[in-house]
């Protein structure tokens, strides 16, 4: 295991003093966090504390107004949109709570999307996608449409889609949020063990302490910044 506080030169992803507002809502007010390669980090905190916003800033989806996000030593927040999009495609995977699969595409076609973007051939993409579905225990679902999948099954497919390009970091925003405890445990088990075996880091937003316990480290957010219990407000 890499250094558990993610500090020092080993940090793969480093966000420093991020600020992000939506209209008059300040979602992030100086949040900083570091993630080491292969590390599993849980972002927790009350509703509205800025967890999802921080996750999307780390993933290069949202652009903070101030502060910096560096991946592998170089800044990604000031890259142009197209470059960031390509970076996300190669280096990151994303899993949401629900509703992320394209409803018209079958499970295997959903998983093929990132590979097609990288110009793997159709046949190669399909083979790789099937292999990942199999690895996540969803081989039988390859030709099902997302509308016909249960919550847990959808999440497996979504994880296959996030992992299929061999990303260095997988971002997951409440991946078990709409599942019961046992299905959620299955999903977490698959996510964490697969990430471990591929060496991917995982950044995880959750309200569930049990899910947070799958992480090596917890970062608690409060009012848009990392909560420091020593600071008495």
């Amino acid at each position: 295991m890499t250094s558990t506080d993610g500090s020092g030169a080993t940090a793969l992803l480093r966000a420093h003093a991020l600020h992000k507002s939506f209209g008059r809502t300040e979602a992030l007010r100086g949040a900083s966090v570091e993630v080491a390669a292969g590390e599993v980090v849980a972002l927790t905190g009350p509703s509205g504390s800025g967890k999802s916003t921080l996750l999307l800033c780390l993933a290069g989806v949202l652009r903070p107004e101030a502060g910096s996000v560096a991946y592998d030593g170089s800044r990604l927040d000031d890259l142009p949109e197209a470059t960031r999009t390509r970076l996300r495609r190669r280096e990151f995977g994303l899993v949401l709570q629900f509703g992320q699969l394209v409803p018209e595409l079958s499970a295997v076609q959903n998983v093929m999307v990132p590979l097609l973007l990288e110009r793997h051939g159709r046949a190669a993409a399909r083979t790789a996608a099937l292999a990942w579905l199999d690895r996540l225990g969803a081989a039988g679902l390859a030709d099902a449409l997302p509308g016909d999948l249960s919550g847990g099954e959808s999440q497996r497919v979504a994880m296959a889609r996030a992992l299929v390009t061999g990303p260095s970091v997988v971002f997951a925003d409440e991946p078990t949020g709409s599942l019961d405890r046992v299905s959620g445990e299955d999903v977490m088990e698959v996510l964490v063990s697969t990430a471990q075996s591929t060496g991917a880091a995982v950044v995880l937003v959750t309200h569930d302490n049990r899910v947070a316990a799958y992480a090596d480290r917890e970062v608690v957010l409060r009012d848009g910044a990392v909560d420091d219990p020593a600071v008495v407000r």
């Binding site: 049990r210 316990a213 992480a215 608690v220 020593a230």
Partner: peptide
């Protein structure tokens, strides 16, 4: 202020939770 205690306790509890999981 009970918050430092609560936060420290949470960290300890989560540590135990991690071990149990």
């Amino acid at each position: 202020d009970a918050r430092p205690f609560l936060a420290a306790q949470r960290a300890l509890h989560l540590e135990r939770m991690r071990a149990l999981v």
